[in-house]
Simulated scan of single mutants.
Amino acid sequence: MLLSEDVKPIRYLKTKTADIIKTVNETKRTIIITQNGEAKAVVQNIETYENLQKSLNMLKMIVQSQNDLENDNCISQDEMFKRLEKKLFD
């Protein structure tokens, strides 16, 4: 992140919205919008946002898997396939 380029006041967003959208799409960097000197919002291109959401979902699945392992809430691969076959063919 380049603070001199990636942090903009809200008045800049109001007057240069098209420029900000063009910049985030070209650079793939997130722009931080400030109001009264405090960070209040971010603007990022859709691809970056979607990748962030995918990463968060993957991390949630990893944490859930770790919790299942710690709580002995697991079954063997053979048992899983038996259950799947039963659901599919019964």
Rank of each mutant, 00 (worst) to 15 (best):
T23R: 10
T34R: 02
F89P: 01
N25P: 03
E79F: 02
F81L: 11
V43P: 00
K87S: 10
L3K: 14
Q77K: 14
R29W: 03
Q64Y: 08
S65E: 11
L69T: 04
M61P: 03
N67L: 15
N71H: 07
E85Q: 11
T30W: 04
N36L: 05
L13K: 03
K22W: 00
M80C: 09
E47H: 15
T30R: 06
K16C: 04
N71K: 13
N36F: 04
E70M: 11
V42R: 06
K86E: 02
I31T: 01
T27M: 01
N57C: 13
K86R: 07
Q64R: 12
L84G: 05
K54Y: 13
M80G: 09
Y49D: 06
A41D: 07
L52C: 08
L13W: 02
E26L: 13
I10Y: 14
N25G: 08
F89M: 07
R11C: 07
V7N: 00
N51V: 09
S65D: 09
I32R: 01
K28R: 12
F89Y: 11
K87M: 11
Y12R: 05
K87G: 03
E38V: 12
I32H: 05
T15W: 15
K40T: 11
N25F: 04
L13E: 03
T17E: 15
I32L: 01
F81H: 09
S55R: 14
S65F: 09
F89K: 09
T23W: 12
I20Y: 01
K86G: 05
K40E: 07
D6C: 09
T27W: 03
E79A: 07
